[in-house]
Design a protein around this nucleic acid. Sequence first.
RNA 1: GUGAUUGUAGCUCAGGUGGUUAGAGCGCCAGAUUGUGGCUCUGGAGGUCGCGGGUUCGAGUCCCGUCUUUCACCCCA
Length: 448
Amino acid sequence: MKPAIPKGTRDFSPAEMAKRNFIIDVIRSVYNSYGYRQIETPAMENLATLEGKYGDEGDQLLFRILNSGLKNVQHSVKISDIAEKGLRYDLTVPFARYVVMHRHEIMFPFKRFQIQPVWRADRPQKGRYREFVQCDADVIGSDSLLNEVEMVLMINEVFAQFGFKIKLLVNNRKILSAIAEAIDQPDKITDLTVALDKLDKTGTDKVVDELTSKGFSPGSVQKLLPLFKVDESLNSKIHFLNSFLSGSETGRKGIEEIETLFRTLAELGVSSELLKLELTLARGLNYYTGAIFEVKLNDPRSAFPGSLLGGGRYDDLTGIFGLPSVSGVGISFGIDRIYDVMEELNLFDQIPYTTSSTQVLFVNFGEKEACHCLQLLSHIRKKGVHAELYPDPAKMKKQIGYADANRIPYVVLIGSEEIQSGLLTVKTMLTGVQEKLSLDDFIKRLTE
RNA sequence: GUGAUUGUAGCUCAGGUGGUUAGAGCGCCAGAUUGUGGCUCUGGAGGUCGCGGGUUCGAGUCCCGUCUUUCACCCCA
């Protein structure tokens, strides 16, 4: 049979892994430095845990796992009768489940991070995969807006290390639901936000069309129009919202949250170039209730479409699992998209990463010589040098070619002559220069 | 889920209107160099033309189906 992998999945070669690990290491070290602690959860969850958390669209995109032991399946069976598990769709919902299950051993507020693959049964396309890795950080059990502030700081710290420019879009679900109230369509928040989200892409006419087709009355659409004409500046947006949402308690709270967040960040010197209040930012996931975040590429060298990060506050995700009124905020980096952007902009060239960490290759001249090398190897590894012995007594051309192909900087040759003299013949691959060194002198050179 | 698009050697790609034995570059292997990589030269291996069916005397080429690739919509990291 012909080898193949499922649609939308990928293999990663050593060179690709080195680059992926570079990205992950940056994120992990920032998470660590802010006090987040790592957990993992299973690839699969019970469908009951997953379903209904991501909207109708999200439910469609869940990978469901067929129950084991099934023999024949009739056409008329219900999915719930043949599948009770599914691959996780994100890391936030499994985390909420984790928090509820482990509530007695958790000290709140709980700051955790998690770096694992997730799966979505989407049609693959640019920047979209069926299996991809998310890097999440969440704080659960704290209402403080300082957590939102911290999320933004981490976002900036991480992206500052990648070599491309981004824009961090911020909005607040409370404001969005207050807008829905203000135009007398409080029950249509989802339709409203989905339509609003397309404003910058398709323009006001298309948004109006979509709202009308979704059953918004002409009167409510009329009421919405001023929103499209607000000035870009933060102050004029806030000013507009204050009057537009004056009658709404949630609207007032949302504006207050936004103001606090932006004020604190300004005091911390977070550039307003990076940060933008985007009133049309919606985000499809159902569970967000407060701040919402999204990072887009903002670099003249590329027009990469998708978002590189998403996140927000969810006030009651644990409620469904039986632990009400515990609020959390979180963010999620999409490393596959960050990788694509860095690859497109050739940014990996300027960044230190290695495909192989081997510093020395010992050439294999035969059983006796190899055995001698093994003893030297264990000594030199204890000194912290990364070294390997070629496994077969192959031709020199082959063995040195192996060092060349793997960019191993030094080759050590130990034949009968070297065993007798006790000196190593060391070849520096870059220059081709060859010299006789004692083991200690060689180690000294490598560890200096 | 809707609409397009792609598939020929390990990789990148050629193969007018169907017609002998399907090509190139790069890579790979071997030799020139029996203890020496990159550069050069010489030689060699490697292809069910994505898969299945159809039209035809004859299909890499035309038709249908299917899978895959890429892209847009939807939605999202």
